[in-house]
Design a protein around this nucleic acid. Sequence first.
RNA 1: GCGGGCGUGGCGGAAUGGUAGACGCCGGGGACUUAAAAUCCCCUGAUCCUCGGAUCGUGCGGGUUCGAGUCCCGCCGCCCGCACCA
Length: 835
Amino acid sequence: MNDTRFDPSTADGRWQRAWDEARCFEADSNSAKPKSYVLEMFPYPSGRIHIGHVRNYTMGDVLARYRRMRGDEVLHPMGWDAFGMPAENAAMEKGVHPAGWTYQNIETMKGQLKQLGFALDWSREFATCDPEYYGHEQGLFIDLYEAGLVYRRSSAVNWDPVDMTVLANEQVVDGCGWRSGAKVEKRQLDQWFLKITDFAEDLLDGLGELDNWPQKVRLMQENWIGKSTGLEFSFDLSSGDTLPVYSTRPDTIFGASFVAVAADHPVAAGVAESSAEAQAFIEQCRAGGTTAAELETAEKLGFDTAITAKHPFTGANLPVFIANFVLMEYGTGAVMAVPGHDQRDFDFATKYGLPIPRVVAPSADEADAPLTEAYSGDGVIVNSDFITGMGVDEAKAAIIAKAETGGWGEGKTVWRLRDWGVSRQRYWGTPIPFIHCEACGVVPVPKADLPVKLPEDVDFQTPGNPLERHPTWKNVSCPKCGKDARRETDTLDTFINSSWYFLRFASQPDDKAFDAQEIAKWMPVQQYIGGIEHAILHLLYARFWTRALAHIGKMDVKEPFASLFTQGMVTHETYKAGDGSWLSPGEIKRDGDDWVHIESGEPVSVGRIEKMSKSKKNVVDPTDIIRDYGADAVRWFMLSDSPPERDLPWSEAGIEGCGRFVQRLWRLFGQFDASAQGEDKGLARKTHQAIAAIAQDIEALAFNKAVARLYELTSAAEKAEPSASRNEAIRALLLMSSPMMPHLAEEGWAAMGEEGLAANAPWPQVDEALLVEDEVTIAVQVKGKLRDTLTAPKGASKESLEALALASEKVQRSIDGAPIRKVIVVPDRLVNIVA
RNA sequence: GCGGGCGUGGCGGAAUGGUAGACGCCGGGGACUUAAAAUCCCCUGAUCCUCGGAUCGUGCGGGUUCGAGUCCCGCCGCCCGCACCA
């Protein structure tokens, strides 16, 4: 039928247009079919899509197309996470407007995505920088404010001196800005906060039900939320003050031998007022590095304040130190130090010659065993007055109870999670919809005035916040009293944009952010796919927003993503010239087993396989490879070989193999012979086994296995003689490969004379009867070692299998006349003879 | 330091406790061709070998089992996340 080659350069575009015209992939909320929401993390429009996007969206696309074939109404949308600093940086560097730059990039990238033939519902596309989108976001922000989930306070913020903006704690990596890498400073500013801590317990508990999330991600979030329980109580100080401390080990209270406060603690400040030495020590602490390496080696340092703290039970006077290892941000910024059972306290006590009593021992016999390091294990309480002899947990409860009855302390839960600071002193973000009035205070912008749009005439040539510098934008009248007032010039953290975009995809009315009933039809997202780098920030914020919106009655969904899949990166070999500079694959050529630089002829060393990055010049541009091999070969490569959660090494040889397979399938489609008759039972069986197995593989997102099975069935069909069974195999292959290689499938579908689009065809039916083999291969082992294989009818009795096995000459030779002690028969699988 | 994951041919990787290495890539041999491309066929874990097979083999060492890549214990190595969180 076709001796020609499949030509993606014409076919790809033709079918992409056909899908568009037929509006195949537009989701119908009113459909009676089961709903299925498949979503990949939407891209930031940085300029061009990269190969990681291609892998991510190909996986989602296979699932979306597969679910459609299984009869679901599928929502598979795409949009743009379009606010953010790169647009502003471009504005500063190139003098282009962030909006122009962003929308231009969106156009380019949309074109690239279209070339890949993704089954996306483009009718729901939006960018988070569309005033319509951020206007609704402003409305939601005001709703949360009115529900008490948004507040403002002055706080020390992480200030990035290069980007001239405030960073969230999460955006500070090792004391440096996550983008600029500049050393972060502390500044006091009035900031907007979201009360994520109100949901700490709920966010933690919710993790337990996310069975279809990677355990790794759940653990990361659990650690991030960081729940701990313990006792908060106050020491009476010799200075007359009281000093609250927090401990998760109140059971060790009789082992406390000193008290330590953070350098930023008020007690430290008080001491510093009259002591230059203390002041100097505090400054030394602040200067200390916070990187992992520095902390690893940092010595425990302290300054004796000469103040003492009275132990609540023993009445002993414990010295109070300012210590460099106590954090002001956690607990109360002060600790009771128990050197016997906390390594940091141990190190400190050793250095300053403080007592190191033992109050926990593995057993009562070891109550006075000397400590060479802190003992943090379980055991029995010793040397501790009324709690001596108790277990650790029992003692914790006893001390907390005693403190609560005595009125000097209480059991308390402390979280590592902080409220989310969302103020950014930048232009390219959602304007925070509030007005500051001298008389009325902070006033929300009336809903009717939303969106608060960004001004277009802004100056990017000076650092800082362009909204602040704009001559008129911030001058408004107060919505309450009408007097002159000032518009808030901070914009929202871009993570807010991505915290509810999946809701807007599901429902996008004009008059509100989304419609609860429409949301209920699609949410939660059935399968969410994206990179592991969002394990904490984006995914935790999205979970929080969803809960917060449910909490204020906007909808009825608590968890946004029922299943989460984190895909691996696309990696590539790196190449280095003799002088150590990186070379791109295009600059080198093969010379026997070695590589040489084309230009200089110098030898090239092959470096590690690493994530594609511009600096290492190991990037492959999706546009180039789509042009060279066609969308289907690229998609196929993205799914082949590596399991989707692992890294995928890009290789020229690999993509060429994929290109060959596209043609191979095309030739096979051409051998579909409508006139062929007769049954080929073996092939039919393989076909139906493949249909069942590939469906399972796709549902498990085990695309590499589905691919392997498609190869197998292809080989079998190629080798078979023409028959009705063979036609069935070819047709099944076409349909089963269509989620992966949709253009080829459409071309083949048309060539076979089928009606309509393959994209609308159902998944092939499995004939259950054909899944069962009637003959099986039985492995025959002697003492667990394979000696022979034999063929037996399916379901043969144990006795007959044993007899068959014993009849084997190879088996007899192996037994060599030894007496048979035992025979294990696993029906339809194996016989193991123990001689 | 804490938490998690992984270790299988030259490479990416398959394998409900039951024939280890499916499938792909690389490599080798052959067919077709004036030639090349394309395509097709065969081989491809190691060692020994009388060419029928034998022995070994899933990071290392133990264990459970008729049988272990898979389960258990102890090491080694690599990767990731968090980290002076009281």
